[in-house]
Write a protein that binds this DNA or RNA. Structure first.
Length: 191
DNA sequence: ATCCCGAGGG
DNA sequence: CCCTCTGGAT
């Protein structure tokens, strides 16, 4: 079953979300306690030696990039936002190392805003269900919001990612266990 | 041996 | 659009 990312604050969510690419939540959860014990707040990480951070996040994949990225992110956050995680998509995306997906996750999960994070899991789910032909994340988010008008989109966002990861898997989708099987028009379903 | 898949850069 | 970065899962 799918594990979720552990975090205590919006700042921690931002960091673990950056670390979560190309690895498992389990792996991120394994390294993050030491990371946040060593560098509790943005100024601490901003002043860290990248090599020390590399040693901590090693095994999460892309570790050199990620270590440099979160140190630069911390510095950027301190310099331009007083160390406070912003609450708008525009400001979040301005941060170094933060793209639309990471920004949407923070907006929805940390701040409870009605954003839907569109990562490759969500794109894949939308595509297989025939909900959208677009690969454009903005379009996918619009289509999903139109499909679920005035719902709890921040909760839907988390559920969609988990569903894509745990059920509508890229390589081995569990179609026989999927509740949407009867409604799903995906032509390449496994037996 | 191949695939995973976000952000930045070309 | 394409490519690169990485260890882990399969």
């Amino acid at each position: 079953m799918g594990t979720a990312l552990d975090y205590r604050t919006p700042w921690e969510l931002l960091v673990v979300t950056v670390l979560s690419a190309q690895t498992t939540d389990e792996m991120v959860n394994k390294v993050s306690p030491r990371l946040f014990e060593t560098y509790p707040a943005p100024p601490d990480l901003a002043g860290a030696k990248v090599a020390d951070v590399e040693a901590i996040v090693f095994s999460t994949g892309f570790y050199r990039q990620k270590a440099a990225a979160i140190v630069a992110l911390a510095a950027d956050l301190v310099d331009r936002f007083g160390g406070v995680v912003p609450q708008t998509l525009e400001e979040l995306v301005e941060l170094k190392g933060v793209g639309r997906k990471t920004a949407s996750v923070v907006l929805a999960e940390a701040w409870g805003y009605p954003a839907i994070a569109v990562d490759t899991h969500v794109k894949r789910v939308a595509g297989r269900l025939g909900l959208t032909s677009a690969t454009d994340p903005v379009k996918v988010e619009q289509d999903l919001k139109a499909l679920y008008p005035r719902q709890r989109w921040s909760e839907l966002s988390m559920r969609l990612i988990q569903f894509g990861r745990d059920v509508c898997d890229a390589r081995r989708p569990a179609c026989s266990e999927c509740e949407l099987d009867g409604l799903c028009p995906w032509p390449d379903k496994p037996e």
